[in-house]
Nucleic acid binder design. Structure first.
Lengths: 241, 241
DNA sequence: CAGTGGTCTAGACCACGCG
DNA sequence: GCGTGGTCTAGACCACTGT
């Protein structure tokens, strides 16, 4: 099991500050040396070296950007799906620099899955908003919102790179209150992967939420694909006895 | 991108019921043909075939047991960390056959991480219980409980393959009430992997909980390593406004 | 344009599961 | 003991990144 030894060795050298392309010692976001150089330095082939790196990747220690190389993973964002704090403030409160990029937004017919989540008939027109969110210039999550247009008329005329929570509150007097969420391990494919500069098959954390307002009315749902090393869910709950 | 095509092709053939070792058509837990046969049937090499299978594995469609082969993933268990239902009843309510195996139990000094979770000094003696849980004969999660011995005296004298929740309630009049949980994507290594018949580096869902009783007193914590395709978190939450 | 990562080939050996 | 999965080698070509 050569790749296990190589994996541990890489970890050590990362902590020691070697292995970097540049001479810097920052342990976050730094790029590693090229695979060929790493393979040579461990006296092995690229295949075995990539095995070791993939292991580190699955442990959340390093990550890959498609065709750009391997990087040290920054600390994950602590994310509480039961809290109303928006992404922007959440990131800032953890000393991270947030950015939201609007990919596109418009009306689409709800597919079967979305229709079920929003409790509407399939093919009903809903608002769909695709956004990518960044932490410190790294794309970490692809978020797709599906919004009931009856509840939020003219939503598309607002600045959708801002927080939806804020728009709801300021322009519609609507607050998120109850939420129903699902979390599972998944992977990024095709477009989803590309949006996060990842390769197909990259491990991901999938979070799906259905949100209700302060009157218990269904508002929207959102589907989030996180780079798996970029987030850790953290919540408190009082159990129903 | 041959492996993407092979991946899709395998999915199709699985749904059609081919590719199995036996002639059966059950889509759950079935073993696939050997890698060499699969590689030959797709006219490729084992390396590329394994690339395709790994992709399916990361999508939760198939899983591997160490040196035993590839199997179709059963539907995941829906798991609500805010609910008190024990594993046994949860599984039964979803038409699954549960089994709990006690690996070992005893007193150990708390390491730094456990001490922090339980709010005690490092090296304090606590009860540690290692258990593996099965669904339909498949090991799906390795659970380690760390219990404060002051709160649960003589706990080790009970049958620890039963539900801890039940033991707490029946013998100590203690109920789980509040819980603080963390969820992140992780991977299985060495012993942890072996306990679930997985290989080192296998993707996992890591769940960490700190549990409090009906009086708000800290009781125990538990660390759970799930096979990532075997579980989906599902919870409702009222947000604090 | 040079170098890199992504992908693929065609083998090989070994330890282990299973019959 | 046979076949299997786990691991590893030594190459190769191509598309893309970064300069």
């Amino acid at each position: 099991m050569q790749y296990l030894k190589i994996k541990d060795e890489i970890l050590l050298q990362i902590e020691a500050g070697s292995l970097f392309t540049s001479g810097q010692k920052l342990t976050s976001g730094q790029k590693l040396m090229s695979e060929r150089k790493l393979a040579e330095s461990f006296n092995t082939t690229r295949v075995t070296l990539r095995e070791a790196l993939s292991l580190l990747e699955s442990e959340g220690k390093v990550y890959r950007e498609n065709r750009r190389g391997w990087f040290i993973s920054p600390a994950p964002l602590r994310y509480d799906p039961t809290n109303t704090t928006n992404f922007h403030n959440l990131a800032l409160s953890q000393q991270r620099i947030p950015k939201t990029e609007l990919i596109n937004a418009g009306m689409v017919p709800a597919d079967k899955h979305i229709a079920q989540l929003l409790q509407i008939a399939p093919q009903t027109e809903v608002i769909r908003i695709h956004r990518v969110r960044y932490l410190d210039e790294r794309p970490v999550v692809l978020v797709t919102h599906y919004v009931l247009p009856d509840r939020l008329p003219h939503l598309l005329s607002h600045d959708l790179s801002a927080s939806l929570t804020d728009i709801y509150q300021q322009h519609y007097d609507i607050l998120y209150q109850q939420t129903h969420y699902r979390i599972r391990s998944s992977s990024l494919v095709a477009d989803t992967a590309a949006a996060l500069r990842a390769t197909s098959g990259c491990a991901a954390m999938y979070i799906e939420r259905v949100n209700y307002d302060q009157h218990g009315q269904l508002l929207d749902c959102d589907l989030e694909y996180w780079r798996h090393d970029a987030v850790i869910i953290e919540a408190r709950a009082i159990r129903q006895l």
